[in-house]
Amino acid sequence: MNIRKKSRLQQYAMLSPAILALGLLFALPFALSFWFSFTDQHLVPRPIPTRFIGLRNYERILTDDDFWQAVTNTILFSCLVVPLQLVVSLGTALILNAKIPFRSAFRAIAILPLLLPMTVVVAIWAVIYRIPNGALNAVYQLVAGPGAYIDWLGSSSTAMVSVVVLSAWATFPYQMLIYLAGLQDISPELYEAARVDGATPGSGFAMSPGRACAMSTSSS
């Protein structure tokens, strides 16, 4: 056996545990799921045999209004929450990267939503959205008069926006930390060079922090 052939065998031998694990944990379940989708297989055991039912499962799901509602809601939610998260986290990162008083304290406060368990986040926002006398409705009543309220989570016109705001608030610190790390990675000499070249704050951002942020956005 020549050295090259031996080396290739060694490579396959070293890869085999990972390939085996991927096959067992990903490829096999995926293939089984695909096969089961053409049968009436149930999760729990049952005393009747599993039958081949062709495309019936697909026919049912594709004609189910609830399924299409869920698809629409998921797309809408993603289209709203991702840009909002990115804008809020970039803005916060830029502020916290600037030399402002109590910067460390503000940084600690800004990442608090990330440290809270989701149950606590939901409890906080339940108080904010509560009807008729939650925090947000108290503000609304200053404008619309006493007794007026909006059912933020119960009305079909406001429920999606309410959930988007909650979700963006709960998770924006994660993206913010990535942006902040990207911004702090920029050498001060780059800012100085941009100033010497006559860059305005806007064009300066596009040249150096903007590029860092573009890279951070793709990683986040």
Partner: peptide, 12 residues
């Protein structure tokens, strides 16, 4: 529900 007789789900 429409007449406002029932406590809504989001009222707690």
């Amino acid at each position: 529900v429409n007449k406002g007789y029932i406590v809504p789900a989001s009222a707690g």
